[in-house]
Amino acid sequence: MNDDPLWLAQVAFAALGDIAFASMLGAVLMNGWLSKEKAFATVSPARFGWARARRIGSGGALVLAFANLVLLWLQAASMSGVPVMEAGASVWTVLTATHAGTGWAIAFAGSVLLVLATASGAPMGAGRLAFAAFGALVAAAGKASVGHAADAGAFSVAEVVQTLHLLATGVWGGVVIAGAFAVLPALGTSLARAFLIRIAGKMSTMAVVAVVLVIATGVFNALRGLGGAASVLQQSVWGHVLIVKAVLVATALIFGGLNRWSALPRLRRTASTVDAHTVTNVMRVEGLLMIGVFVAASVLSHSVPGFAFGG
């Protein structure tokens, strides 16, 4: 494992950006669902949950934009070989004269679109949802264009798959993280219980769709990263981290399945406070595991991929 402070900073801010991106996606979806049910109304018992979704959405977009700005500075320091505090003179060169700078500009443009899409305090209608989806696509495509997938060339199948992987992982992790730690607890009152049950059900369905895409694209990325040599799993840091990520994903799937096929059906039958807390608590464990997945993904993206060892 690399112990260089600059590398660690890049990994940390990349992970922060991924978590913010995911939380924003999840919050925007829940904002849309709650807005459709008019939870924004002053008299609605779910208004607090809607307000939290709105704040998490706008806050996540701002944190993503900030993380991207820091990453550009760190990239300039890495590419120029100068101390971080002296990297300012290299930022413009990196931005205008390198492939990494072009990819960063696309990703940052996506984050700006997301800030604009989530800035309003109005209910999240179909138009803003579409605008946010476009911003998320741009942000994910920009990030994919500077990762390991870029080795296959611009607009390659690898880049398209990685873009889908980033979006799907963001949706899965986002509905779980934003839902478990912010929105569902705000719907915990008995008066808002019906909203909680419906939103939790929509979250579960959305997560299933996202998981299918995560697994399909993840397998593609893993096989590509291995370069046909399974021994890379044991012989490289990249391989070790890939195993850790796979274990975290598998464990998160177990907790997600526990909620979908056990806790959530029981909550629908009873609508009890105890079962509502069980759904939220199980989802919190899944959310913590997904945060671990984002950290592992960040380490992978800043490590030499397996196919490089095979020449």
Rank of each mutant, 00 (worst) to 15 (best):
A180S: 15
R54P: 04
A77T: 01
S90D: 04
M30R: 03
T280K: 02
G306T: 09
K143D: 06
A222T: 15
P265L: 01
A76P: 00
V160C: 05
P83C: 00
A87S: 15
A149N: 11
A210I: 09
G239L: 04
F220L: 13
F307Q: 11
T205Q: 14
R128V: 01
V63H: 04
A46G: 02
A126Q: 13
L114F: 01
M24G: 12
N281W: 10
A140T: 07
A182T: 07
V249L: 15
H240V: 10
D4K: 08
K202Q: 15
L164V: 13
S204Q: 06
G174S: 00
G127R: 13
A109F: 10
V157A: 15
A122D: 10
A139F: 08
A126I: 12
A132L: 03
V63P: 04
K36N: 10
V304I: 14
A246K: 06
A20L: 03
S298W: 03
T118Y: 05
Q10L: 02
W7G: 11
L114I: 01
A252F: 02
F155P: 00
P45D: 00
S58L: 08
E37K: 14
W33Y: 13
L113V: 04
G306R: 01
E159I: 11
T169V: 09
V237E: 10
G17L: 05
G88N: 03
A46W: 01
N2E: 12
I254F: 10
L258Q: 11
R269N: 06
L184E: 03
A27N: 12
F307D: 11
G228Q: 06
R266D: 11
A149W: 08
A178E: 02
A67G: 11
L16S: 07
F13M: 14
T96E: 08
F307V: 13
S272E: 05
L167M: 14
R266E: 11
R260P: 00
V160F: 10
A141N: 02
G227I: 02
R54G: 10
L137V: 12
L264Y: 10
F131M: 14
L196H: 14
I106F: 11
A14G: 12
A263F: 14
L191G: 09
H302G: 01
A97L: 02
A152D: 14
G103F: 01
S231R: 08
V247M: 12
S272H: 12
A149K: 09
A308T: 09
A12Q: 08
T273V: 11
S90E: 00
S156L: 07
E86L: 00
F48R: 15
T280V: 15
A296M: 02
T93Y: 00
W172N: 13
L253Y: 07
L289R: 12
E159T: 09
G311T: 05
G227Y: 01
G188D: 13
G110V: 01
S111W: 04
D18I: 01
I215Q: 08
A136V: 08
A200C: 03
V279Y: 07
A182H: 13
R54Q: 15
R47V: 11
L114M: 15
L191Q: 15
A39V: 08
A271K: 09
A250P: 03
A14Q: 13
V219N: 06
M290R: 03
L289T: 07
A12K: 05
V63E: 04
P123N: 10
A136D: 02
A105I: 01
A14H: 12
L71I: 00
A22D: 04
L8D: 01
G147L: 09
A87Q: 03
L242Q: 04
